[in-house]
Design a protein around this nucleic acid. Sequence first.
DNA 1: GTCTATACATAGATAGAC
DNA 2: GTCTATCTATGTATAGAC
Lengths: 215, 215
Amino acid sequence: MIAVAPDNSGRIRRQNQERILDAAERVFAETGFAGATIAEIAASAGLPKANVHYYFSTKEDLYRAVLQSILTLWLAPADRITPDSDPAEAMADYIRAKMEASRVHPYASKVFANEILHGGGQIQPFLSEDLRRRVEDKAAVLDGWISGGRMAPVDTRHVFFWIWAITQHYADFDIQVRTVLARKRLARRDFDHITAEVVRFVLRGLGLEFSIQQG
Amino acid sequence: MIAVAPDNSGRIRRQNQERILDAAERVFAETGFAGATIAEIAASAGLPKANVHYYFSTKEDLYRAVLQSILTLWLAPADRITPDSDPAEAMADYIRAKMEASRVHPYASKVFANEILHGGGQIQPFLSEDLRRRVEDKAAVLDGWISGGRMAPVDTRHVFFWIWAITQHYADFDIQVRTVLARKRLARRDFDHITAEVVRFVLRGLGLEFSIQQG
DNA sequence: GTCTATACATAGATAGAC
DNA sequence: GTCTATCTATGTATAGAC
């Protein structure tokens, strides 16, 4: 009888779960929930099919776990937006963080986009609770800036939709972007250029163009 | 023997194909290619399953036909952007047309988004030929405006990505938008408000804010 | 805890009567 | 041209040996 030490066993468990989650994120991103197969996820994780079922009993369980791991990333960038911060600085930081997220976690962005696109049934609570509250809070901050004459008057909740749309576009629609630009891939320096352009565009759109100097 | 008159038979044929295409567009939009079933498409079209196979031999054929019917819609709005037009007017018209497309054809937008999201294998020629050429042409028009000092200096090809991202967001991510705004649905007047906000934001972002008066 | 073999369900596609 | 019945493939999930 080969008994595995508890600490070690726990590590293997976590390690395998992590491998499966990473593989699943990629496969779900590339083919959607229905298109993804356990076989492909297992192969991509370097594990036999039944092993995936051992850690995540059903495909839906696994999908929910992937979504969960994404949602924790999703709200973080908005932390920079506070009443006391300089509007232009705060919004520029936010946009940069969102662009960085698109560059580093394109699969996460695609899984999220796919879930929303198909009705968002699995993340309804996140949308109606966490995200909604967050947007209300941050929109209130922007409204304060507008009242103080520090920003152009806009419907502030839509400002977030626009920033999400633009920044996530570079992850979700990357094939279209690369094809239209005739680029094989978008490297870090491409993202730096794009990020600077997006920051300038959005800040100008919000009437914040004169406040910052650095791109 | 019941022979159907040729003209009439042609009409039934077109009518059934149209019903199937409409139903397929909706089902593909809601569940993606893999998630869609012929049974659901047939039910939604009010026809038996085998009838769908009669008109479109395979699921992929049907999917391609749906995409084809969308692509013809996709390039039209950019026609308003010409060297002689007033920059602000032309861009405002373009944005309004794209927002209207999102309002009227949300399923088409979702099918397109889904296809891009999953690699765009079925529309690669469209992306690399038609769309790429169109963007190059229209970006050149914008570059001309910039040279003439009529618009702020920006990377003009990305301007199109931004406008697509924002306007299509209201179709593709409608569940998120509605949930965050706590609205059951977005009516025509909601779209009118949003469109005006988007037009103002984008024009200001492009340095065109002073040129137009009407929202 | 791992993995092979397999049961079971679903869905794409087709044969053939009408 | 329409539709029922069915074939076949694929993929989820599980049983059971190791």
